[in-house]
Amino acid sequence: MNTTRRDLLKFGALATAATALPSIASSGTAPAPVGKAAKPLDILILGGTGFTGPFQVNYALARGHKVTLFNRGKRPSPEWPGEVEQLHGDRNTGDLKSLAGRKWDVCIDNPTSLPFWVRDAAKVLKDNVGHYMFISTISVYADGSKPGMTEDAPLAVYKGKDAMAETQANLMADIENLYGPLKALSEAEVRKHYGERSTIVRPGYIVGPRDETDRFTYWPLRVAQGGEMLVPGDGQDPIQVIDGRDLGEWMIRLAEARTYGIFNAVGPDYPLSTDAMIYGCQAVTANGIQLTHVSPQFIDEQKVELPIWVPRADNPYAGYGSVSNARALAAGLTLRPLATTVADLLDWFHALPAERQAKPRAGISREKEAELLAAWKARKTG
């Protein structure tokens, strides 16, 4: 089946639960030097050791900021290139004692999916942070079928009994119905407590090094293997992704500029189709490929999932591939070339343990792909 709202929601919720990961490989090109910020900030990051958090930390340190992390301390922290203060607590149980009596210029809230986390943190932080930044999701939109969704589109409505009583277990058990509405209510809590001192960032698919979901990773890995590839649709369905480094670093620049408001954090800054994405991966791997396009109906009939791809027609989630990022670009969002993301992602993935590489977490096996290609050709010639 094609990528559905459930796929986007499930992996979106899990992305922040990634374990501590190996160091990030580069594409062989030395990164450009990062200049110091005009005014150093005291930054509190809720979370900080998952997917995008380490990118925020590394960039903030490079810019000369002071960084404090608050989390449960369940994961080993990466080796930071500077001093990072670590505070421990548990937002599930309301244990926020280590935050009491402290002040920060800005707070970045990375992992929240439950509105009571925002409410309870505000009891301690509301008068002690100047700027509250919240990572949300494009899944908050009520109607995912419309291309070009802007930040002003209507939001999903919670239909349960008590949003403040929802738990992580409830969320994971009914993620398709709860994730978007609970994120929307979390946003509402942010605005309630911090008002115009808040920034809400709504990413779509976050990709690149450290992405433990393998949703986007499936495609460069498959292209690197070469040969005949099964490609869903006609190859022209729109794709949107954002490199986790671009997201994390932009959050720090938004904090430096005291930029408030709501922003869709998606890329690239040009229309990207399924075929263009695949050929972009080929430009990095340099392996010969032959694309065989199969219909969305065939994919549905075969009950398989091909990640990232969302058909642009007759699909309630077609808009997920063409969300408007105009406001974010105007606010300084910069995006790495696709080739850089692909090269760095492959370097990172190939540095993982062999047993992890042997079991990608999204996409289909080569054996299943061959089976599907044979079935498609038999249908076409039958």
Rank of each mutant, 00 (worst) to 15 (best):
T199H: 02
I200R: 02
E196V: 12
G204N: 09
L185H: 01
D214G: 12
K183I: 11
N177T: 15
V207T: 01
G208K: 01
D211H: 07
R191V: 15
P181R: 02
R197C: 07
E196F: 07
P181Q: 06
L182S: 04
D214R: 08
E196Q: 14
T199F: 02
K192F: 06
K183W: 09
E189M: 09
I206D: 03
S186P: 14
I206E: 01
N177L: 14
R197T: 10
E187F: 11
L182E: 08
S198V: 00
R210N: 04
G204E: 02
Y179E: 04
R202I: 01
L182H: 11
R191P: 05
R197E: 08
T199L: 15
E196K: 15
A188Y: 02
A188F: 07
R210V: 05
A184K: 05
G180Y: 03
Y205S: 15
S198P: 12
P209Q: 11
G208N: 03
D214Q: 11
T213I: 03
E189W: 00
E189N: 06
G204M: 05
T213W: 02
K192A: 14
Y194G: 11
T199R: 02
G204R: 00
Y205M: 15
A184S: 09
R191T: 13
S186I: 09
D211A: 03
L182R: 09
P181T: 02
T199W: 05
K192N: 13
A188T: 15
P203W: 03
V207G: 00
A184R: 00
E196T: 14
R197D: 03
S198Q: 08
V207C: 08
I206N: 03
G204A: 11
G180S: 02
T213E: 01
R210E: 07
P203L: 08
R202K: 03
L185C: 05
T213V: 09
Y194I: 11
G195D: 07
V201H: 00
E212S: 10
V201I: 12
Y179F: 14
I206L: 10
D214A: 13
E176C: 06
A188R: 13
I206V: 15
E212F: 15
E176V: 12
I206K: 03
L182I: 15
L185F: 06
G195P: 06
H193I: 10
D211I: 09
K192I: 14
R197L: 12
Y179L: 09
L178K: 12
G208Y: 01
V207A: 03
E176I: 09
T213A: 05
G195N: 11
S198I: 02
L178W: 03
L178M: 12
G195S: 10
P203N: 12
P209I: 10
E212I: 10
E187K: 07
Y179S: 03
L178Q: 09
G180R: 00
R210A: 04
A188H: 13
E176N: 14
P203I: 08
Y194A: 12
R191C: 10
